[in-house]
């Protein structure tokens, strides 16, 4: 069972270990010095950083096709736990350095957004974005 229950303020929260997420997306960790045993509560797939800032909740994994310094900054600001760069995008060294400094694991996957989100969703990692009509599961 990839999904475990964690008690958080007496509310049960589903989470997945980042190491399991890495397996599901067949990803490579780009800054192994940052620990990858974090507990991820949900996923968010987006390429527009303003969108990420608007909807993502803390402790989510961000899957994105965008690959620049602002992605790392956005993750820092929005308390995103880990970033998966899709389609084999390789971040520049300064991005890796910044992410390491901020303790954010960077993962690179050859797979695309559709496949990664699809596989993670089907493995039980739910969406972790604020539903825009307010009804969030």
């Amino acid at each position: 069972m990839p999904l475990r229950l964690r008690h958080n303020n007496r509310k049960q929260v589903n989470y997945m270990k980042l190491s399991e997420i890495i397996k599901h997306v067949q990803g490579t960790v780009l800054n192994p010095e940052v620990q990858t045993d974090a507990e991820i509560i949900g996923g968010c797939g987006a390429d527009l950083m303003s969108d990420v800032l608007a909807v993502v909740k803390p402790e989510a994994v961000l899957l994105t096709g965008l690959c620049n310094l602002q992605v790392v900054r956005t993750a820092e600001m929005a308390d995103v736990r880990a970033i998966v760069f899709l389609r084999g995008k390789q971040p520049m060294p300064e991005m890796v350095e910044l992410a390491t400094q901020k303790g954010i694991p960077l993962i690179s996957s050859q797979r695309g957004m559709f496949e990664c989100c699809g596989r993670l969703y089907c493995s039980g990692l739910r969406s972790f974005e604020t539903n825009m009509n307010g009804s969030h599961e």
Binding site: G45, C117, Y121, C122, R126, S127, F128, E129, N131, M132
Partner: peptide
Amino acid sequence: TSAPSYEIIGRLWEMGIQ
């Protein structure tokens, strides 16, 4: 839809759109 992309993709994948 008002649902986020992640969820819609996940549910499409679940239905076999892959």
